[in-house]
Design a protein around this nucleic acid. Structure first.
Lengths: 159, 159
DNA sequence: TGAAAGTGGTTGTCGCGGCAACTGACGCCC
DNA sequence: GGGCGTCAGTTGCCGCGACAACCACTTTCA
């Protein structure tokens, strides 16, 4: 074990700030959605991704991948959303192991009603605070980090 | 309610990537610390901040602020860390409402033993992947976001 | 063709974080 | 100087997420 390479003051400052944002941002997203739509951020994400999918249908595995989640976690939240009538599980005809999540009409209406407030929140806390140049820089930096955090790049891997 | 201002494709892409990093990064930090030191990232943060404080002592309120936490959350985790012998609670002499958290020698040793692995992990997943220029950009962007997320700027406000 | 390995998904248990209610101590202010 | 609002901190309960064990189906290959 070699002696550790510490961070320079500049690196440390950037890291502490990133750490803080990573800690605080989820709370801001969750509380707006909870207040205005009784949804967690993750629940909203599931509904939103479904609403963007062709036919409003996605396989559980695929849905887990694009929401950066695990199958058990997704399964739990899908059960909750199903109980509230926002989506339905249906067995997949081609592969009888698989399950498809279908957004219901109620679920679609929920997304339509909730999206504007959520976008406004994202603007207010992130996008509108940054210059176009900073948004571009942010995109590049996050893309680099994702390559390491998510090597399979599940967000791009299509079915 | 006016019609919502949607995000441009560039903004959307940057946002989705930030969203993903915010979702995935905590897991990476937690699992390394859990594996190598049986600590959550937040527990480590508490010990680390104490270890940087003069006399290795901080008031609970102050500790909550610099860890971006709430008092109830901190109180719970301090109880756990106290049970494991890493710190002690002591009533504050000047203000009998207040409690001081003291890092023990065992706790200090734990931080010393754990820090190098944690820093290496931060390097591997964040800092070493970015150019110096990107680190600087990241710092600027996160500073801007923190101004909104944490208006009191508790990280700077000294006792 | 049938056993073994692999894949898709669900369920159960446990631990942490959020919130609300509560206690005790300080300070104000007439 | 006693009562009232506020502040510091703790506790209890609830809900979500992680993990592991499990079931069902598919694929492979001898």
């Amino acid at each position: 074990m070699e002696t550790p390479r510490w961070l320079t003051p500049e690196q440390l400052r950037a890291w502490i700030r990133l750490e803080s944002v990573v800690e605080l941002l989820p709370t801001v997203l969750d509380s707006q959605l909870q207040r205005d739509a009784q949804l967690t951020h993750f629940e909203y994400l599931v509904l939103a991704k479904l609403s963007e999918a062709p036919e409003h249908v996605l396989r559980m595995t695929r849905l887990a991948a694009i929401t950066n989640s695990t199958l058990p976690r997704l399964s739990h939240v899908v059960s909750r959303l199903e109980a509230r009538g926002y989506l339905e599980r249906r067995p997949c005809p081609e592969d009888r192991r698989a399950t498809n999540a279908h957004l219901t009409e109620t679920g679609w209406q929920k997304v339509v009603a909730t999206a504007p407030g959520h976008v406004a929140n994202v603007r207010a806390h992130v996008i509108d605070l940054l210059t176009d140049e900073q948004v571009e820089q942010l995109d590049g930096i996050m893309a680099t980090l994702l390559e390491r955090l998510d090597p399979q790049n599940s967000l791009r891997r299509l079915p």
